[in-house]
Design a protein around this nucleic acid. Structure first.
Lengths: 210, 210
DNA sequence: TGTACATCAGTGAACGCGCGTTCACTGATGTAC
DNA sequence: TGTACATCAGTGAACGCGCGTTCACTGATGTAC
């Protein structure tokens, strides 16, 4: 792609820069003019691809949700699917850890995603991207229930609890708020793993225990 | 306090308006000029009480942390302190529910508080306010461990997990993301209660179980 | 109690700035014949 | 293959705006004697 009047890939490049800048600096202070300038294009060119600033920021959020969903899905799929009873548990845990990993890598993007999706007038695409993420978690919980590993309460209710734990861990770890104790640095994932295990101990079907 | 040249209580009023406006509208789009205007004062008067915009926003956050801490403390204290074994559990749960209640009443304030405190150059007052909130949770967990109700893992580590769950519930419920399923409206607190119970089932000392 | 004066808490004009968005435009690209 | 033309993806000047902050100021308050 030779440098030319027509950029050819501007939309992708704008999104990539917006995401990077949001992560490296801050969500506020990210302006259409700055993005365009950094990308080497006139400050109105972006309007050829996004109706307004909100559309661009929403697109970044949608992309984030999609990426996070894939990471969670892939992490769960990577856990060998033998018939061992604890398999479903391991898959759910892997899923949660992937979520936390994403948050540690991109804390501000995660924050932006949830601010965007919780806006009263969020776009359908955004809502759907968020819902699909939740579905991945939900399916893992359902799987565990089917195999009799998890208690048989309402699946979505249990999934909400899982999501909350993992999202809370992600937010707090991503914000650096769980440091300084037994967790000086780099041990964030370990800490998250322990928290998830504690929670999963509560999720198991106690009636089925020996 | 008669209306006069000297307002007498301007600092308090500025903070109150900033908090209300943040909650009702949004954190961005909250300007020093707007706050001053709404309070009926020249747009530079606020600088008599806050060195800059950041100082004002930080003060709002500190106030929020303080209020949340008191709510959690009070909720735990309200649970009768008999010697029943499950008392510590009930107190921790009450504490968590108070946190969620605060989040449902003031979701944007909560979001602002955590954005502010996780800033790399957050003020000492802010960091301390956040830390004190965590201590309230921590003490409940420690209490449960002393009484042999909770497992005896590292107290702060377990407290982190509690905080994460409750904070995640608060964020997701506050953002309205857990609606539309078995949770049409108004049942947010019930949902949070169930999630906390599930988690607490994992927190109990299984070795001590009969 | 009365007066002089320091301090405090406001005012309002002015600064410079970057922002989102519009508009008429122009150069590049692709397509129909 | 060559040409005419529609469409597409950029440009850059211009718009109006609200922002945070500064400054020299003034009116109100409190205190010492």
């Amino acid at each position: 792609m030779t440098p030319s009047y027509h950029h050819g890939d501007l939309k992708t490049v704008l999104l990539a820069y917006a995401r990077a800048q949001m992560e490296n600096v801050s969500i506020d202070g990210l302006s259409m003019r700055e993005i365009a300038k950094a990308v080497g294009v006139s400050h109105t060119a972006a309007y050829r691809h996004f109706t307004d600033k909100r559309a661009l920021l929403d697109a970044v959020a949608v992309q984030g949700f999609e990426e996070l969903r894939q990471a969670c899905q892939a992490a769960a799929d990577d856990v060998a699917a033998e018939d061992a009873a604890d398999d479903a548990r391991a898959r759910l845990k892997a899923c949660g850890l992937a979520y936390v990993r994403f948050a540690l890598a991109s804390p501000r993007l995660l924050a932006h995603m949830f601010i965007a999706v919780s806006d009263a007038q969020a776009s359908a695409a955004l809502m759907s991207a968020g819902a699909q993420l939740f579905e991945v978690l939900c399916m893992r919980v359902a799987e565990g229930q089917e195999r009799g590993v998890f208690r048989s309460a309402d699946t979505r209710q249990l999934s909400h609890a899982c999501w909350a734990l993992v999202h809370g861990l992600s937010t707090l770890l991503g914000a650096g708020l769980l440091k300084g104790d037994a967790n000086p640095h780099g041990e964030a994932m370990d800490s998250a793993g322990q928290a998830i295990d504690t929670f999963l101990d509560g999720l198991v079907d106690h009636s089925a225990r020996k």
